[in-house]
């Protein structure tokens, strides 16, 4: 089957494999309705798959949060993950850059490949993974530093930008490069106009929407390939939300964006394809966004997107 990695080194690993196998059989055999897995996994992408997820299970302690997720996420597009709360869509998102490793009780079983390279392999360099797969969180979380330092934080930690005494001693001061980087990222995040005259102010003084765009800019500064967004606009007012939505569509020209949202209109507006998770941590349908919202295969998905259930 797939490569296995348990964040909590659970001894019951083999049991778990059995259980997940059982679960897959149950889903396929037990569900007599039209939505068997094969129907939507055959879905043809416009681009290359950037991330391919194969039979992913996630447990919190003994509780299964995700079961048997298999999907390919295409390059340079927006993929929306929707579903009712508690359906595991955020958990799924956090599996894609292994942020779940930080939760002690979480264990992951299955395979996620980034451009064909397994991210749950032994000896994986988490730093490189998270540089390539960036993340923006539900509530804006800028560091209590200046706007400039927020942007250059990542590159500094990776040794790409160095200022200060040591850098000057080594003749390596990249102050100019920092300026350029800050400007590029803020422009990309559509924040430059608003903050260009106060880059040395504390980021906590910005409004919520500005903070969230700063977090996106901070993420862009390490030059990721994939950007994961966990309900990035849920804490914001409608105007700030609209700005973030525009930004997401723009980013998709260069980046692969995966966005979790509980707002179906938002998913319909911004995404190219949509995955619907329903209660119990299963992926029910994954297809072009238009198809999901206009003519879903599954009755349950139709009920959910039309608001009959959820």
């Amino acid at each position: 089957m797939s490569n296995t990695q348990n964040a909590s080194h659970d001894p019951a690993e083999s049991n778990r494999d059995d259980r997940s196998a059982d679960a897959v059989t149950q889903t396929t055999a037990g569900e007599s309705q039209e939505e068997t897995q094969t129907e939507w996994t055959d879905y043809e992408f416009r681009g290359e798959p950037k991330l391919s997820v194969d039979d992913l299970d996630v447990y919190y302690g003994d509780e299964r949060a995700l079961q048997g997720i298999t999907m390919d996420i295409p390059e340079n597009s927006v993929t929306a993950l929707i579903g009712p709360s508690g359906c595991g869509k955020s958990t799924f998102l956090r599996c894609l850059n292994r942020m779940n490793d930080r939760i002690k009780s979480a264990s992951v079983d299955g395979s996620v490949e980034l451009e064909g390279e397994e991210i749950y392999q032994d000896g994986l360099d988490l730093v490189t993974l998270r540089k390539r797969v960036g993340m923006v969180f539900q509530s804006p979380n800028p560091f209590p530093k200046t706007i400039r330092d927020n942007i250059s934080y990542g590159p500094r930690k990776h040794g790409d930008i160095e200022t200060g005494l040591l850098a000057r001693l080594l003749g390596d001061d990249s102050g100019e490069r920092e300026e350029k980087l800050v400007e590029r990222c803020l422009k990309q995040a559509a924040l430059w106009e608003e903050v260009s005259d106060r880059l040395d102010d504390n980021a906590l003084g910005l409004s919520g929407g500005q903070q969230q765009r700063l977090c996106i800019a901070r993420c862009l500064a390490v030059d990721p390939e994939v950007i994961l967004m966990d309900e990035p606009a849920s804490a914001l007012d409608p105007i700030a939300t609209a700005k973030i939505e525009d930004l997401i569509e723009e980013l998709a020209e260069e980046y692969t964006v995966v966005v979790v949202t509980h707002n179906m209109q938002q998913a319909a507006r911004i995404s190219d394809q949509t995955a619907v998770f329903l209660t119990g941590g299963e992926l029910v349908e994954f297809d072009d966004t238009d198809k999901i919202f206009e003519n879903p295969e599954s009755q349950r998905v139709e009920d959910y997107v039309t608001g009959k259930f959820g």
């Binding site: 991210i119 000896g123 994986l124 360099d125 590029r184 990309q188 030059d223």
Partner: peptide
Amino acid sequence: MSERTLRNQSRDPLAVEYS
């Protein structure tokens, strides 16, 4: 839209080889 100066380094291999 942007000159992606740092692009090259993001293709670092994901796995670390232990010697």
